[in-house]
Simulated scan of single mutants.
Amino acid sequence: MPNGGAYDRSRALNTFGNVAFRLRELQQARACYDEALARATGNKVGEAHLLGNLGQVLERSDLCHEAHDAFDAALALHRTLGNRLGEAAARNGLGEAALAADTPDRAVAEHTAALLLAAESRSRPERARAHEGLARAEQRLARLGEAREHAGRAAELYEQLDVPEAADARALRDSLGAD
């Protein structure tokens, strides 16, 4: 694994990008991730995670095709590395980008693949993200029963994790009404 100056700066820039992303400072987050990627040469694990982070910023910035490309590159690296959890995260990102690009059928396929990988990896955060993505895609496809079921599962998992995303998942579940 690389060490020293460039590697340490890349990690610091990734951390700054994560903070900026949480604060919804998308331009700042993108600048941090772009610079971190430029410094991450030789660190395939770091590069894969940075590409996923960049994909999230691009998707939230309504740059769906660029986001897809970043998530696709992250997926390829995670596959090469044998990182199933990373694959789940990249698949969830591809699903979110697909939904933002108004291709809900593709979103369902990507989030379903992510759900399987997340279950295999025993990752509750990625399982919750996959269920939330499936709920939103199923809602877009007017399959409200499936959407409610996935929104409920997402809310339960996020509540177990005690993360802010639980409120959004509950609101989505509640907006879908009762069975």
Rank of each mutant, 00 (worst) to 15 (best):
N3E: 13
G4D: 09
G5L: 10
Y7V: 13
R9I: 14
R11N: 12
R11L: 15
A12G: 07
T15Q: 15
V19A: 02
A20I: 06
R22K: 15
L26A: 08
Q28G: 15
C32R: 03
A36K: 06
L37D: 03
R39K: 13
A40R: 01
T41Y: 12
E47H: 00
G52T: 05
L54F: 06
Q56G: 14
L58D: 04
E59H: 10
H65P: 03
F71N: 02
F71P: 07
D72W: 10
A73W: 09
A74Y: 10
L75D: 08
R84Q: 10
R84F: 04
L85G: 05
A88G: 01
G95L: 03
G95K: 04
A97C: 08
L99W: 07
L99V: 01
A101Y: 01
D102S: 13
A107V: 00
A109N: 08
H111K: 03
T112E: 12
L116H: 07
L116S: 06
L117A: 14
A118Y: 08
A119N: 06
R124Q: 11
R124P: 04
E126W: 00
H131S: 09
A137M: 01
A137W: 02
E138K: 04
L141H: 06
A142G: 04
R143N: 13
R143V: 11
R148Y: 08
A151Y: 00
L157G: 11
Y158D: 06
Y158K: 02
E159L: 08
D168P: 03
A169R: 05
A169H: 09
R170P: 02
L172M: 10
L172E: 08
R173A: 14
